[in-house]
Design a protein around this nucleic acid. Sequence first.
RNA 1: GCGGGCGUGGCGGAAUGGCAGACGCACCAGACUUAGGAUCUGGCGUUUCACGACGUGGAGGUUCAAGUCCUCUCGCCCGCACCA
Length: 826
Amino acid sequence: MNEKYIPSEVEAKWQKDWAKEKAFSTEINRQRPEYYVLEMFPYPSGNLHMGHVRNYSIGDVVARYKKMQGYNVLHPMGWDAFGMPAENAAIKHGINPADWTWDNIANMRRQQQELGLSYDWDREVATCHPDYYKWTQWMFLLFYEKGLAYKKKAAVNWCEDCHTVLANEQVVDGRCWRCDSVVVKKELEQWFFRITEYADRLLEDLKDLKGWPERVKTMQENWIGRSTGAEFSFDIPEIAEKIFVYTTRPDTVFGVSYVVLAPEHPLVEKLVAGRPEAKEVRAFVDRVKNLSEISRTSTETEKEGVFTGAYAVHPFTGEKVPIWVTNYVLMEYGTGAVMGVPAHDQRDWDFADKYSLPKRLVIQAPSGDSTIETMTAAYEGSGQMVNSAEFSGRDNESGKDVICAWLEEHGVGKRRVNYRLRDWLVSRQRYWGAPIPMIYCDKCGVVPVPKEALPVMLPNNISFDSGTVSPLAKVEEFVNCSCPNCGNRARRETDTMDTFICSSWYYFRYTDPHNSTLPFDSAKVNYWMPVDQYIGGVEHAILHLLYARFFTKVLKDAGLMNIGEPFKNLLTQGMVIKDGAKMSKSKGNVVSPEEIIAKYGADTARVFILFAAPPERDLEWSDQGVEGAYRFLNRLWRIVGHYAGENALVADEYDPSKLNKNERELRRVLHVTIRKVSEAIGERFNFNTAISSIMELVNAMYAFRELQAEASPGLIREVVAGLLKLLAPFAPHITEELWHETIAEGSIHAQTWPVFDAAAVEVDEVEIVLQINGKVRDKIIVPVGLGASELESMAFEQDKVKELVADKKVVKVICVPQKLVNIVVK
RNA sequence: GCGGGCGUGGCGGAAUGGCAGACGCACCAGACUUAGGAUCUGGCGUUUCACGACGUGGAGGUUCAAGUCCUCUCGCCCGCACCA
């Protein structure tokens, strides 16, 4: 074999071979347990970055390891290929978005192949391909049939830069998640998916996701934001209307001193019409409405309001309470109106202070001596109800229930569950997406495109300008169509779908990527799904991961398969950092994977990235660390090369019990390593410690070679074969090459994982730590398996121990066999 | 404010309650060499000539024994945040 390790030669050779042999193609096989490992598919921006390399390296180790363990492994890759950047490239450089996207895919696929990733390329999907988006459209129609897709006019998030609306999940701190520009509210008619209908199940089933990180589940829980309480009404006799309020604290209802409405509340105008307060209220409402989402919802913004001049009737007491309009009530949550209870809600307390509204104590804290006069803040805890008519004296927790019962009995209100989660706004005023398959007919209204007419193809002859309407609206051949119902002239919907829809079901398509009659065959999905291990960045904790869960539940309810949750185990990998910051063009700290591969090879890149940190943690890029990984592979190459072509590697049977001491030690290290690596990969995904123990094995081989030039026949073969197999998932090319050079003809990646031999790791002597008062004072080597009493007496025979114990009184002796003796003296 | 995570050598990071710092990087020394930024061998927490003492953000506690368990506290990171 070649004396020098030349990664480029080795890697190209085996990549070609794997592709030719279709080494990683997968079919259903009921003889073996199935395992589905999936990395979040990328947006084809054109080039892989280190975050991708990390993501795919992690997945590839899992895939290759599981395969060697005997699993039937599905490990696919594809492209989240619709989206804005393609369109921006078109606008900026006049390139066709489809061409731009397909070129990028070709380049990134090449880069992935150069990383030696074990994908089943026959299953590749691209969401922008008509064979794929046909089924995305089919999904839309399914949602429509089930009443889960609907159109409504609402105040929606509008991104001025992207010229499109956004779902709530895509607005981060009042800014667009993609371009970071400030989002404004616009009244528009848009398509929504009724995700709120699934809110409870999305929340409930989180409990079963034992393999998900706690923080992702918490984030979803917060996002769904379930709260329980009551909704009830205050009469406004003057205008014969009711104000409905929502509260989680019905037990504080006797503390109400005012009612507040959101500025957008439909009753505001009705209430103030013709009153002297009208002018001031209208001015206030206008001012608040014009504020940006950020300043509007910031907790720092001072609570402000105006009195409408109108009063409502308290349903319990019959008292008149003033109606105010304020900036701290949101129209989108609950009913857009709130009862003000200053004594027991800090926001109301602040508001009451500012406008000198009365405060009434209705929950007495356990200390029992609070009065409004002595309180300096609202009391939001629990306690005893006071000043609450017949409810006084009750503890407030049971009071909630009793108040609700009263409301229901008197027909004033009812118990209600509320969610922070809103319906998913799915239409986008953009070109490069899956067209929404709907038609507008003057006679028939909104008509879905018949499924047999799918896909609704994206036209290619598109012109871009920075207008405000959807680009598709300007393509007459696209817009004009005939109504599927009556045949008259009709217009197509010109919005496209949020790309998160495309990515909400791709993992199903992988199980049956070429199906031309259905999005997937349910038997195939049921065989492969759920994904056993999903790997990706935590930035999708709510977005993609929530939508995907929603989709899965809808498809299950539609009877398309029987999977309730898509991703059994989720690994959220950390970011790749350099000089303390995330790699980014603007920071100028980007290291290109292609350069690293060209210089050191893919195996080095993979080993470095997996060795430098555990997968969940952020990874600090280090050029010297890469050198270290490269050095390790060279060291491996040399030590294996040293034995290649020698008798050491002949496939002789041998008797491990005949080995000498050095040889037994080498064999012991091998088996300890097998155990450690198996545990580190299989149980904890601690790839960094797995690699470190493989390094120790290589070090042990060097140490052995120093001790003796020749080895018993068969031993080196066992060690080399084991070593290569253990490293194969991490560094697939170099191990494949060395395997062929030294062990056998077939691919190492089709081998079975090495088996740990318990007998091999047995030792006959063990070091015992001798402690006095918990401090290490001596160490002794003793035969393995000594009992506590023997150990204890041996400990006391040591000179050092005698000396230190001599004039003291032994209080206690703790013996941990195989480990230590601790003598407690006074 | 609420929720989650993290604090260990010069650095990345290891440690089922049982010898803190595995492995790697950097650094130092030796060997080999015309040469070495290659390779091999060894050293490498702080302090002390040494015995030893000290050491896992800080302060307490439990324990024969604590990086690990408990209480409090400081710092950093992430998520959510006027959600009634």
